[in-house]
Design a binder for these strands. Structure first.
Lengths: 251, 251
DNA sequence: TCAAATGCAAGAGCGCTGCTCTCGTAATTG
DNA sequence: CAATTACGAGAGCAGCGCTCTTGCATTTGA
């Protein structure tokens, strides 16, 4: 399937990669709006029409970049998760792993803002994401699900409350995404994931300008609170100072 | 200042408004990427160069639309808030007002997805938002701050825990945004606002496709949880079924 | 009131874009 | 070796943002 049959296919793969690389370079430099097929072709020393042998349209090129971006951020999340599991001092706590993954995604976004905008900003090409994107798009989500499953397996935690109107939907989501998790947790997890991306988007897209300065600590705190919402708790409860008020705010 | 001096200025105002209206129409139909000055001019029966008398560039037109969009969503939030305060059965609870404002913003976004993308999606024109946008951009935030202030004034609630590393930043934010609120609450509020936009963005930008079906109930639940994070509680505690587990999940 | 100054629409034009079509050549296949 | 296929090059079309010049209408000030 993936074997290379001749020099021709080898060349095709290389040229395709070169086009994507050059496109990524222009994307990083100027943003998706200014990415032009002609400029990519020019930089590669080919004529613009030749490029259409590899990508049938500009939107198809963008879609390929979107898939790659999903894969890159998923890769970053999985690497960070593995690193926090294989630490020399033994596997980290679920909360620490949750935060490590979140920070890895944020750092990838800060390093590749335009690619981040491609996947979590306004959809550029048409409207509905092509089928090819849904696999790579869920990689980060799977990592987060794994962390929560682990956390619940080691120390069996209480399930958060679940409103009656949301129960059928939560059960459907749980069946689709994580049958081993309580529906209430799955619903909270999906919400947390979107909220987590909201935090990053506000920072990347400049919404925190003149509002939040210490972005890193702010993000870590917010992400830790998000973890609490899905039942991933700090087992050492060293939340500083007022940590005693941590759980009884609703009493 | 805003008085109209002659027929010329009156005409200028009308033409400017007509351009923005037509641009908004094309924005709604095709998205920001396909909005073209020439098409707007064509539809208005003028030649494209004439349009540059009113907006010096395409980006300036987009900026004007952005400001208008910020104002529109702020207006929607303020209207919803006023409505929930002036209800016949007396002013609603802080939580109910919080949810009402959140739902109003969400519904505005659903009704104007491309305008929403303009302000909370990837920034299209340059990179930093012009000075003119920061006023309108903060209208929704001010409404939320007001609700939290009210909630704390009527029933003095506990302040959430605040990590030591975040304290100076939280105090700076509180001084800038809401000096009457505890710094920990202000920090939580800013985070909640970004997370809240994250929820809406995921829905608008299609990230919930095949994941979340019952968007409305899901959103209400998530937004209510967000409110809890900033100390706005459901005073009737009728959260259904497992509501007794609401506060002691960390014990 | 009349001339000077200003505001504005129209048109032509520049360089760029995405995309299509044709044509000659080189690699692949049977 | 012949037929097929894949590919690069070039010309060309329609559309874009934007600039410049020209001529007319309105406003302004002496």
């Amino acid at each position: 399937m993936t074997t290379i049959r001749g020099a021709r296919e080898r060349a095709r793969i290389e040229v395709t990669a070169a086009i994507k690389d050059e496109a990524r370079k222009q994307l990083a430099a100027e943003g998706a709006a200014k990415l032009s097929l002609r400029a990519v072709a020019r930089e590669l020393g080919m004529v613009s029409s030749a490029l259409y042998r590899y990508f049938p349209s500009r939107d198809d090129l963008l879609t390929a970049l979107i898939v790659d971006a999903y894969d890159a951020v998923g890769e970053a999340a999985e690497t960070a998760h593995r690193a926090s599991c294989d630490a020399p001092a033994g596997p980290a706590s679920p909360l620490a792993r949750w935060i490590a993954v979140a920070c890895a995604v944020r750092e990838w976004a800060l390093a590749h803002p335009h690619e981040y905008a491609l996947i979590y900003g306004s959809p550029v090409p048409g409207y509905s994401a092509p089928q090819a994107t849904i696999g790579p798009a869920s990689r980060v989500g799977l990592v987060l699900i794994g962390i929560v499953e682990d956390a619940r397996r080691t120390d069996g935690l209480a399930v958060p409350p679940l409103a009656a109107e949301l129960r059928p939907e939560a059960e459907r989501m749980a069946a689709d995404l994580a049958p081993d998790l309580p529906p209430a947790v799955v619903a909270a997890l999906v919400a947390a994931w979107s909220q987590f991306v909201g935090l990053i988007s506000f920072e990347i897209f400049g919404q925190f300008n003149r509002i939040v300065e210490a972005r890193e600590v702010f993000f870590r705190q917010a992400v830790a609170d998000l973890a609490r919402n899905v039942g991933v708790l700090d087992d050492r409860t060293d939340r500083t100072a007022t940590s005693s008020a941590d759980a009884d705010a609703g009493a």
